[in-house]
Amino acid sequence: MEDVVPNRFHVHGYVIDSVHEARKTIQHTLSPRVRSYLKANHRLLNPPAESLEEESRTRLEMLLVSKARALHRPCSRQQ
């Protein structure tokens, strides 16, 4: 029986799966606006940031900043 040797594509697949699992876990804690932005741009999380074009890199940075702010914001919404 042959041993399966993971290559960079296997490793990249595992990383992508983990990133999307984390995204799906936290998206329920985000505001509707941030959640919709994340959903519309979630594919920006797949490639290395260095390989993105400038517009995509800017959207990725906005996405990550929005998520960070949403995660550190208190959840109480009393009005």
Rank of each mutant, 00 (worst) to 15 (best):
V19M: 09
S66M: 08
L30W: 03
L38E: 03
N46R: 12
R33D: 05
S31K: 14
Q78E: 04
H10N: 06
Q27A: 13
E50C: 02
E2M: 06
N46Y: 13
H42G: 00
H10L: 08
V15F: 03
E61S: 12
S66A: 14
P47S: 12
K24R: 13
P32C: 05
D17E: 12
R23N: 04
H42N: 07
Y37W: 11
S56C: 09
A68I: 05
S31V: 02
H10F: 10
S76P: 00
M62L: 10
N41H: 15
P74Y: 08
S56H: 15
D3K: 14
M1N: 06
H10R: 12
P48V: 11
G13I: 10
R69E: 02
S36H: 14
S18F: 03
A68G: 02
V4W: 14
P32K: 12
R59Q: 06
E61M: 05
H12E: 04
H72Y: 03
Y37F: 15
T58D: 11
P48H: 12
R59I: 01
D3H: 13
T58G: 04
H12P: 00
M62E: 11
F9Q: 07
K39Q: 09
K39Y: 04
I16P: 00
S66I: 00
R77E: 10
D3E: 09
L44C: 05
R57G: 01
R43Y: 14
V65I: 15
R8V: 00
R59A: 13
Y14C: 05
Q27E: 15
P6S: 07
T25F: 12
H20M: 08
S31I: 01
M62K: 15
T29W: 13
E55W: 07
I26N: 05
Q79N: 05
S51E: 13
E50N: 12
H20I: 02
E21L: 14
I16K: 15
E55M: 07
A22I: 12
A68N: 03
N46D: 13
F9G: 00
S56Q: 15
L63N: 06
R8C: 00
A40E: 10
P47A: 10
I26H: 06
S76Y: 09
S31C: 03
L64M: 06
D17Q: 15
E55F: 04
V19K: 15
H42Q: 08
